[in-house]
Design a protein around this nucleic acid. Structure first.
Lengths: 142, 142
DNA sequence: GTTACGACCTCTAGCCGCTAGAGCTTCAAG
DNA sequence: CTTGAAGCTCTAGCGGCTAGAGGTCGTAAC
């Protein structure tokens, strides 16, 4: 039986975050001591590790919720999990494209900066005048 | 004199967002008609375009606030603007690295998926067992 | 047995950057 | 003068936590 602190250390998740996951029903309510403190089993450790790993892969908590449901029902087809992962991959690839464009533009901006007055600062100028921007930004780069 | 709607269209910024920028003092309070509606000048258009372009480059609103201050005081050195941009570039590059790692792992996960039961689904299995993960995730990939 | 102290508890509010909706008023064209 | 789009304010919500206040519990040492 693990305390919340022990679970926190084992999974690299902050205590507050664990309680948050319980609150949004991503983790089940654990047993409590007579005094009201949470005590966790290894199944909770597994579930939290799964969640954390999903987060590290950039899945949203909602996607993780779906994946957990699928993991709990092994008779259902794997293709659903697969399509969630594919969706996630697409999102990652889109973000990659945008970030690469951003990197280029930032680099160009910086490399052209002479370090003089901000009156003729390239960085500020590029920001001021969008027409100097080579990049196609449809969405805001996050 | 532009209405908020016209400004919205010209900059691709939602009306609510423009009011939000005013609220957090990123845009100055514009003149108002007798009836209380906002009316904007071209300087406001420029300032908002600057902000939007900064956002497209991934700068935080606080970074943009700094950049705007620098742009308003041309006698100050450009090196401050430069260092803000460099900071931003570093962040972008770090995110790129992490996203590339994520992409790899997602691809591996998906390519190994056979489409059978989720009982032996690679996607779920990788999530379950972190030791199968080749990637070094220190932070959560966003 | 008591005391000390860290770890736990709940609850509330805040972060960023918007976004949405309710319920009202103003503006401009016909 | 009427209509209807576009404006207004105010409040609350999104995701995914994070922080702090102010209190209680558990355990080890004395």
């Amino acid at each position: 039986m693990l305390t919340i602190g022990a679970l926190s250390r084992k999974t690299g998740t902050k205590v507050q975050t664990i309680r948050y996951y319980e609150q949004i029903n991503l983790l089940p309510e654990p047993e409590r001591t007579a005094g009201g403190q949470r005590r966790y089993r290894n199944t909770d450790l597994d579930r939290l590790s799964f969640i954390r790993h999903g987060r590290q892969l950039g899945f949203s908590l909602e996607a993780i919720r779906e994946l957990l449901t699928l993991a709990d029902h092994p008779q259902q087809s794997c293709s659903q999990a697969d399509s969630i992962a594919r969706r996630q991959l697409e999102q990652v690839q889109q973000r990659l494209l945008r970030l690469k464009a951003l990197e280029q533009e930032l680099q160009r901006m910086i490399s052209e900066c002479t370090g003089g007055d901000s009156g003729d600062c390239r960085v500020l100028e590029v920001l001021r005048d969008h027409s100097e921007c080579l990049t196609d930004h449809n969405n805001i780069g996050e």
